Computed example of a mutant assay.
Amino acid sequence: MSTKLVLRSSAAVAAALLAAPAFAGPTYTNDNGGSFRWYGQFNPSFQNFDDGVEDYNRLVDNSSSNSRIGFWLEQSFGENTLKFHFETAFGLRASDGVNQATTGDSLSWSRTNIRHVDFQFETASYGTFSAGQGSMASDGITGADFSGTGLGAGVSVADIGGGYAFRTSAGAVSGVTIGDAFTDLDGSRLGRVRYDSKNFGGFVFSASYGTDILATNNDRETYDVAVRYSNDDLGAFALDTGIAAAWTEQTGQQDRRDISGSLSLLHKDTGVSMTLAAGDRDISGNYAYAKLGYSADLLAVGKTSFSVDYYDGSDLVTNGDSSESWGIAAVQKIDRFNLETYIAYRDYSYSDTTATTYQDSNVILAGARWKF
């Protein structure tokens, strides 16, 4: 597909989204304190990846926040509430699922696209108890971010191009992919039991135990703990932070322990934010991430956000290797249509202790997320 055709197709998708009416899934209630609410989003984007030798142009679904649909069922019992949550991705071609060799299927749904099949019992006195497919306690722990540019730039820097491989200085496609060399060591979604405490002055404590019930022939077991703190009333500042530890065991693989966390601080008067994240895996490597953001009401249609960020990783593929990435991003909200348009640029570099040298790669991602 030529660049011109891809750009025209991307423009057509954006035009269709802009023409769509503002829409939100309704909430249905009954006389006994029950409710049903459904929701979803589409997040198509145009991806241009340059591996130093070739350019690749794709129409993809943005893996930073993929297209999905879901619903909530809730029933109150006095001060307590029983909830059921279902959510699935559509299985559209993912921005981190294409590479130099193939674009894959434009639509390929499997049960691994199911994100939540989750029962939750929220109590007034003892916290929340959860069971089913859903987020582990450590899921999202590295995602604290007030910048407003998470659709284009975040700590999971491989989301917008992780399937592509680095090219060697000789021009050959190597065996090291962007996804191999860049990780956020964040938690995952598994079939799990989980407990979340009540909020104690902004602090919430969580613990969970889970296994991969959607993948076949998988005996992975993970247990984790996390603590989060958030406060949007620290004078002129708002703070969101958390840290977690996760232990994973799987037959035939070495046991591992991950420690990861993030912190984001917003100066509310200026819209300037700073975000930091870091992670360490005991059997491999570690990384650090920093981001500077700015959000303001520059246009009447909605908030405008900009950011610049930097990622530095070590020993994530082999001992002694180095992974570096920097990026810039802009997001424009269009409140009337529940729409966020965005564009992001990211550069990746990698080196290791072998005689092989690798060319830098870069990716441009532009798209729009429509929530309904």
Results as ranks from 00 to 15, higher is better:
T216A: 15
L234V: 03
G242H: 00
T248S: 06
A236H: 10
S208W: 07
A245P: 01
A238I: 05
N218G: 04
A226L: 08
I213E: 13
T222V: 08
N231W: 04
T216S: 15
A215Y: 03
V227S: 08
S230G: 09
N217A: 11
E221R: 15
N218H: 00
T222P: 00
L234F: 07
L214I: 14
N217V: 14
S230I: 13
R228E: 10
D224K: 02
L214G: 05
D233Y: 06
D240W: 03
T251W: 02
L214D: 10
D233M: 07
D219Y: 03
N231P: 06
F237R: 01
G235L: 11
T248Q: 12
G210T: 06
G235N: 04
V225W: 09
A226D: 03
D224G: 15
E221M: 15
E221P: 03
F237H: 00
V227K: 06
T241F: 03
E249D: 14
V227D: 12
D224Y: 13
G235Q: 00
Y223H: 13
L214T: 15
S230H: 00
Y209F: 08
T251N: 12
Y223F: 13
D240I: 07
Y223T: 02
R228G: 14
T248L: 07
E249Y: 01
L239I: 07
Y223C: 01
E221T: 06
G235W: 05
A215W: 01
L234R: 03
L214Q: 14
A226V: 02
D224F: 12
T251R: 07
A245V: 13
T248F: 00
T222K: 00
D224V: 09
A236M: 09
A236K: 12
A244S: 03
N217H: 11
W247Y: 13
S208R: 04
G242R: 05
N217F: 06
A207Y: 00
Y223E: 00
D224S: 12
T248P: 05
N218E: 03
N231G: 12
D224N: 15
R220A: 14
A244F: 06
T241R: 01
T211C: 07
V225R: 02
R228I: 07
T222N: 10
N231K: 10
A236W: 08
S230Y: 01
D232P: 10
R220F: 11
D232R: 08
A238F: 04
A207W: 05
A244H: 00
A245M: 08
A244I: 06
D233R: 08
Y209Q: 14
N217Y: 04
D219V: 11
D219Q: 11
A215N: 12
S230R: 08
G235A: 10
T251G: 07
V225P: 08
T241L: 12
T222A: 13
D233H: 10
G242N: 03
N231C: 10
Y223K: 09
D240P: 05
L239H: 00
Y209N: 10
V227T: 13
T216M: 11
A207T: 15
A207C: 04
T222I: 15
I213W: 11
A246I: 05
A215F: 01
A236P: 13
A238Y: 09
T222F: 01
F237I: 00
I243W: 02
T222L: 04
D232G: 15
D233E: 12
T216C: 01
Q250E: 13
A245E: 03
E221F: 09
D233F: 05
T241A: 15
Y229C: 14
F237N: 03
